[in-house]
Amino acid sequence: MGQSREGFTIPLLAPFGICREPSTLRKVGELSGGERQRVMIARALVQETGVVLLDEPTSNLDICHQMGVMEVLRSLAEEEGLAVVIALHDLNLAATYCRRLMVLPAPYMVPVRPGHLRGGA
């Protein structure tokens, strides 16, 4: 990542649809469940780390917010070199946004190329 993310919180929250200006900040207790979930993801992303581990970050979000979260994560991975490891149950979302997939049917781990899930090579 290289650069400090100090003061980066507000711009990072905007793509999550939480706030655009510091004056629009609300207390966590005033947020909906989906807003709270997106804030927690943003909090994880402002840490200066090269790897982010997320467990079902898009669960309980509507499809627009699911796609928005995944777009932000993909952008950070591609543009800043952030390694993002996500546990997802939605294979369509995973196939759309993830460069590499590993399907975990109990008790085995099976590596899968995203193209195989979409019928490609």
Rank of each mutant, 00 (worst) to 15 (best):
L61D: 08
V52M: 01
T9K: 04
R74Q: 14
R113K: 15
L53F: 14
V112T: 11
R99V: 10
V28C: 04
E35S: 05
G33D: 03
L91H: 02
V52Q: 04
P107F: 05
F8P: 01
L61P: 13
R74G: 05
L61C: 07
A106L: 02
A42M: 00
A95N: 13
L82T: 10
C98K: 07
L117R: 07
V103N: 02
V72Q: 08
I41H: 03
E30W: 00
T49N: 14
P107Q: 07
H65W: 15
R100Y: 08
Y108H: 14
V51E: 04
G68Y: 04
G50C: 07
L73C: 09
V51M: 11
E6I: 03
L82V: 06
T49V: 14
S59I: 00
S4K: 07
A83I: 13
L88K: 01
G17L: 02
P107S: 03
A44S: 15
L54R: 05
S32T: 15
I10V: 14
D55N: 14
R26M: 12
Y108N: 13
L54A: 06
E35V: 03
L93M: 12
T58L: 00
S23Y: 11
K27S: 15
L12C: 13
T58M: 01
P111I: 01
L101C: 13
I10H: 03
L61M: 08
